[in-house]
Design a protein around this nucleic acid. Structure first.
Length: 482
RNA sequence: GGCGCCGUAGCCAAGUGGUAAGGCAGAGGUCUGCAAAACCUCUAUUCGCGAGUUCGAUUCUCGCCGGCGCCUCCA
């Protein structure tokens, strides 16, 4: 079985083979740091995190780039409104993004290029397109990409099969007189007073201005890829489904017109949207939930990862209190088992124990097979999670029968749980609480030994009132919060 | 108007032309002083509705009903 991925370009699941055997260039469109990224943004980033991890788990060397858009209409407007420079406005949100990323256990990309740090390559790209006659300067001083001069335009979003209704989304209101064709998109925007005010304007041979949104991804991806591996075609390019058109379509147009290659990326992957309480999450609707909101609510990031991975990335899903609660409950089962497996003796005793150990190792083999098959199949994380839970059930059964938690069993579970990274976050120790609980447990043990169960139960109720649950086992009494 | 997606048990959610994974919740049982956790058993003769293709459809086709996405700077 080899890795197969759904390619938006062909609308099919295809065998994945990197351009150069053994290594993969992965470009993922990152956040616009004009504000806090919301949990919907992070659904996409989490999908990309899993993709990255699975490529690496498959033995590939991944070069992962994620851009930060630090100059666009929104960042400029927000900075102007606040009366600060673009840089000043954006910096805290960049830091917040990295903090949220770490909370969600998303592996850091190898490069986080920012648009404003790649002005020179962007200017070079625009000049190249002007020289080829594919871009032109409009009456307003901006530079536009002439779609009519790039026949392949629309391949990704299958524009040839669509009848575009300009402005149908209700999000466009600008007059288009400066363009030759209403569908042309801007490469370089002539500087406006607000741009100057927030220091978001740069000199260029074709006029002072600032980059259009799509330009940065082409310039940064091509620049970094050339520097790193001398290439100009990405293996995989990802983003949210909303980026298919126009963002990725325009990236392809710019990049391919410039490089002359038929592809900008060989595989295009897009994550579906996350709804929040039944509605699309958007700052326009004021129903934003950020990662930090969930963190403040005490939601374990592992529960969120589990929640997202229990639905396929190309499937829409809804985040609400119920869905989080279900994920939290599932996470507890995984966490309990993980602790049990780690604590169990490595060796078993007797014939029954040996049989149980063999059973556990058989389950471990099955876990590896099913987990691999699931993720190889277009990153079918729900099936991978199911394989993990199947192992939990089989593992608990085997341990009940005295199995030894042998190396292969532990390693298989650590490996699978590690790829998804869905084991509970260790809770920060509350020494004061722990001391009190331990004292109560000692009192209860004394009461139980005296067979004074009324008193023992009273103590348990007392602990329960503070959220502490007890578990009496052969090795003594264990406790947990929640 | 154009392009496209979805509708599977109380909830979430995989899936396949051959008779329904997994999670949460629930019921009974084992274990336990009682619990908790764990384990066992049970919980959709059925996959929005209707018709068609087929030996056979949840899975393919058509229609309908119901939700929804995109259509120029939203992940």
């Amino acid at each position: 079985m080899t890795l197969r991925l759904y390619n938006t370009m062909t609308r099919q699941v295809e065998d994945f083979a990197p351009l150069t055997p053994g290594r993969v260039s992965l470009y993922t469109c990152g956040p616009t740091i004009w504000n806090y990224a919301h949990i919907g943004n992070f659904r996409t980033f989490l999908f990309e995190d899993l993709l990255r991890r699975w490529l690496e788990a498959s033995g590939l060397t991944v070069f992962h780039i994620m851009n930060l858009t630090d100059v666009d209409d929104r960042t400029i407007q927000a900075a102007a409104k606040a009366g600060v420079t673009l840089r000043e406005h954006v910096e805290p949100y960049a830091a917040a993004f990295f903090a949220d990323r770490d909370y969600l256990r998303i592996l850091p990309a190898h490069a986080y290029p920012r648009a404003t740090q790649f002005i020179a390559p962007m200017i070079t790209l625009v000049e190249s397109l002007l020289a080829k006659g594919i871009a032109y300067r409009g009456d307003d001083g901006s530079v536009y990409f002439a779609i009519a001069r790039f026949p392949a335009y629309g391949r990704l979003s299958q524009l040839d099969q669509r009848e575009l209704r300009s402005g149908a989304s209700g999000r466009v209101s600008s007059d288009e007189y400066a363009k030759e064709d209403a569908r042309d998109f801007v490469l370089w925007k002539a500087a406006q007073p607000d741009d100057e005010a927030v220091k978001a304007a740069w000199d260029a041979p074709f006029g002072r201005g600032r980059p259009g949104w799509h330009l940065e991804c082409s310039a940064m991806a091509l620049d970094l890829l050339r520097e790193k591996w001398g290439g100009d075609v990405l293996d995989i390019h990802c983003g949210g489904v909303d980026l298919i058109f126009p963002h990725h379509e325009d990236e392809i147009a710019q990049s391919c017109a410039h490089t002359g290659k038929p592809d900008f990326a060989r595989v295009w992957m897009h994550a579906e949207f996350l709804n929040i309480r039944g509605a699309k999450m958007s700052k326009r609707f004021g129903n934003i939930t950020t990662a930090r909101d969930l963190k403040e609510d005490g939601v374990d990031a592992a529960a969120l990862r589990l929640f997202f991975f229990q639905t396929h990335y190309r499937q829409r899903l809804d985040l609400n209190d119920e869905s989080i609660a279900q994920a939290v409950a599932g996470l507890r089962r995984l966490g309990d088992f993980a602790a049990r497996l780690e604590a169990a003796p490595a060796a078993s005793s007797g014939a029954v124990g040996a049989a149980a150990t063999a059973e556990l190792e058989g389950a471990a083999t099955l876990l590896r097979e099913q987990f691999t098959a699931a993720l190889d199949d277009d990153l079918n994380a729900p099936r991978a999670v199911a394989a993990l839970f199947d192992f939990v059930t089989a593992g608990n059964r085997a341990l009940d029968r005295g199995a030894g938690a042998s190396g292969p069993a532990r390693e298989a579970f650590r490996w699978a749980a590690g790829v998804l990274d869905v084991l509970p976050t260790p809770k920060a120790a509350d020494a004061e609480l722990a001391a009190w609980v331990e004292e109560r447990i000692q009192s209860r043990r004394a009461a139980r030994q005296a067979r004074d169960f009324a008193k023992a139960d009273l103590i348990r109720d007392e602990l329960a009132a503070r959220g502490v649950t007890l578990e009496d086992g052969p090795g003594g009494t264990k406790w947990r919060v929640g």
